[in-house]
Design a protein around this nucleic acid. Structure first.
Lengths: 215, 215
DNA sequence: ATATTCTTGTGAAGCTTTTCACATAAGCTG
DNA sequence: CAGCTTATGTGAAAAGCTTCACAAGAATAT
């Protein structure tokens, strides 16, 4: 299977296209041009066409792209046309917020397991899910067929927990802790660093940084 | 003022260096090489040196970089060697979590104002801050000398609120709503799209995507 | 039916970012 | 203090990503 490596940026833009298409669908558009799609996500029409062209030809010359159809295609490319079984480790501030975060569920990311190490939380029901003891993490992850693990634990323990998660055979981890994690090469690891964007704003304000191009 | 435009990636990596240096400081390192710094954040030594070279020469040949000093320099470059007055709009799931999120405060982002439109919340005390009525957003932002606004509101109302925020003269906005926002060119706008990274994981799992290079 | 307009898909050009590779400088060793 | 080792800073090369520009296909108008 020879895959031309798709760039990270392209994949992230697919998420944007998906979002824009969902909105366009609600607004009852049948078709949309690369120009309009670009405008809505502050990109260029050429960028939109190029991105999509990596995956096939979805448009009609002179007309544009079929909204519903393209949305469906992108969801299939991104793998969000199905349900993913997600476990969340760490039911603190961030963790609790994520459990209730509608966007996740809407895109097929179903949080079906919660773990914490706090005795007061373990066994209690949080939004319909009983919080399990993190001590049983490895076994419970295996037994419940979890495919993706979200880490919302303190930075200091993130690596230990990651090691458990990896041992359980999980191949995809989303980490909210502000620390880099070591995982084997066959495990996909992504970071959500919420301070980073604030720091970018801070940098921009202090340095009068030229804003990003916006056509 | 002629500034060579620094790339977004470089700025984001500065955040990583800062984080790594904070840890190194705790571990009582006096100096660190670009090699070690790179290893800790899964980058290359050349990348580290090049990034830093945009801002000055901080290292000593044969020895490396002075940890404390470099950390301080980076915090100054990023503008996090000071306190930023931040307002948070929308005290729901995500919003509440952000108020308690220690990382922000640690880096000088002080949330000093909260706004919501829910009558049950308005006037109540949340983690030491009284929640104000979003109806008075524009005036209150002006009066309290807010410099950065964080939006954690539903996508449907995000643009209206943004317009208010812009009218209040705010020049930096961090948006958590999954929607693109229109702002004038002199306003810095960044997005925190938490679904995006999950979608990336989903894409990677489904497509057996070659993991990012990791030296 | 023909002309006109619209808009895609895509090589090629242009631009940006990363990596290479090495001169240079500082510390360390004996 | 000479030789060796370590590690920065940086032009230049390489790689990667975005934009350009246009041929070609499809719809619409006359």
């Amino acid at each position: 299977m020879t895959k031309k490596r798709i760039s990270e940026s392209t994949i992230h833009r697919l998420s944007l296209y998906y979002r824009a298409l969902s909105l366009l669908e609600k607004e009852n558009y049948d078709t949309v041009s690369s120009k309009e799609l670009a405008k809505r996500e502050k990109l260029t029409p050429a960028q939109v066409r190029k991105d999509l062209s990596f995956f096939g030809t979805f448009g009609t010359r002179g007309l544009g792209y079929p909204v519903r159809e393209l949305k469906h295609q992108i969801s299939s490319i991104l793998g969000i046309d199905r349900v993913w079984r997600v476990a969340l480790v760490g039911v603190g501030n961030i963790g609790s917020a994520l459990v209730s975060y509608k966007e996740f569920a809407k895109q097929g990311f179903q949080i079906v397991k919660l773990f914490d190490n706090d005795q007061r939380k373990i066994g209690s029901n949080h939004k319909g899910i009983v919080i399990a003891d993190i001590a049983n993490l490895e076994n419970e992850l295996r037994e419940s067929n979890i495919e993706i693990v979200v880490l919302a634990v303190p930075a200091t323990v993130a690596q230990y927990i990651t090691d458990d998660v990896v041992r359980a055979g999980i191949k995809a981890i989303l980490n909210f802790a502000p620390v880099n994690l070591k995982v084997p090469p066959d495990v996909y690891l992504r970071h959500e660093n919420m301070s980073m964007e604030l720091e970018y704003l801070s940098f921009a304000l202090v340095n009068n940084h030229a804003p990003k191009r916006s056509k």
